[in-house]
Simulated scan of single mutants.
Amino acid sequence: MSKRTLLIYIRYLSLFMVILNIFSNNNEISFLPIILIMSMIINNQVRFFNFKNNSILSCISIAIEIIIVSFLQSSINSVGDIFYFIPSVLDVCFFKNSLLKYILLSIIALCSFVINLSASFGSATGSCVILIIISVLCIYIYNESLNKVNIQNLYDKLRISEDNLKKSNSDLEIYASSVQELAILKERNRISREIHDSVGHALSTTIIQLGALEKLLTNNKDLFELVKELRLFVNKSLQDVRRAVTDLKPIEYEIYQNLFKIEELTNNFTKLTNIDVKLTISKNTWDLSSVQYTSLYRIVQESLSNSSKHGKSSKINIFITFNTRDLVVTISDNGIGCKNIVKGNGINSICERINELNGTVEFDNSSNGFSIRASFPKHTGGDFIEKN
């Protein structure tokens, strides 16, 4: 049973006990007590359902109810009954303002004591003590309920923090894996290029020189055959080196080659602006067409510029995800954001480029900072770049 339902049951029970006590102790009831009873019930219900979030109106309603109760008890000579004040006590106990709560409870207890004092001092004291006990119990229930809500809120915050931490850890693992893979591809490509340019060039020059020497030794058959065999051996070695270079040069590098230019863009942007840019690229990449790459490059470039000039951000995250059917790029910053998104030349340019690729783009300023999420299908945007 919820707290609200329990309060309603107790409230209606106390009102029912008031009405039952009046009719059981009085054979004939005049018109005035009935009017007062109806006024008390209406005032009580209006306060509970309409004034529960307004302390001032609730205080006025409670004061009116105390006046009605005093007139009602004097008109029917019914004293010593605490049920008249229970609805007011319940409402006051659940006030958020502690000082106001205790002041009103003291006033209600004092009014009960004064009203019931005409019967006897013991009756007045007993009614006052019972109201104080009920008030203490209600305050205890309220505090327990408040603590439960606070614990639940704390638990929710911890759960959200845990989810965010897991997401950040996952993003960090993806980022580290992406950076490591890109570094390996770059290094393999550099080594293959160095072997091709140094060893390959030296062997090619040696073959040319041996060929020239071979022509000069046509009269010396023994040296001619020796030089010829040496030339063929060096030529075979050159072919082995070329095969090794081809095997060493990563095929994935050509897929990543355009993405390296985006990485260079982010690195240069960081050097110029001192803004921390984290670029994460998924492993499952595929070739970008010239139009796709140009659009992706310009989107990242424009987003970086906007985050620096308008967002005043200090950190930017870029996620480029290659799915089986489309590419998704998400760019978010921790800047000041904006209340209303005004589509200037930069944002319009992003929208136009994505529309040309039959994609979609979304702008989000609901959280801290600003984010762009754009996607376009894999097979769109013109011819694909051929591998060399």
Rank of each mutant, 00 (worst) to 15 (best):
L272N: 07
I191T: 12
L223C: 09
T280F: 01
N267W: 01
F233V: 07
V199I: 06
I195G: 04
N235F: 00
K283Y: 09
I195D: 07
S204E: 00
F224M: 10
V227G: 03
N267K: 10
R242G: 01
N235D: 02
T246L: 06
T246W: 06
K278D: 12
K236Q: 11
K271S: 11
R190K: 04
L226M: 15
T218Q: 06
K278M: 11
E225M: 14
L210Y: 00
L279K: 15
E252H: 10
N189L: 09
Y253T: 03
L232M: 03
D197I: 08
Q257P: 04
R190L: 04
T206E: 07
G200T: 02
Y253P: 03
K228D: 01
V277P: 11
N274F: 05
L238K: 10
K221N: 15
K278S: 14
T273Y: 11
T205H: 05
N267G: 04
E264Y: 09
G211V: 01
E229W: 08
I191G: 10
T280Y: 03
A212M: 07
D276N: 15
I275S: 08
G211S: 05
T205V: 07
N220A: 12
S198H: 14
G200W: 04
R243G: 01
D197T: 12
N274L: 05
D276Y: 14
E194M: 08
S282C: 01
R243V: 00
N220D: 15
N274A: 06
I255H: 09
R193G: 11
K215Q: 11
S204T: 00
R242C: 02
L279Y: 12
Q239F: 07
T246P: 00
P250D: 08
L265H: 05
E214N: 15
I262D: 07
L265M: 14
E229R: 13
R231W: 04
N274M: 06
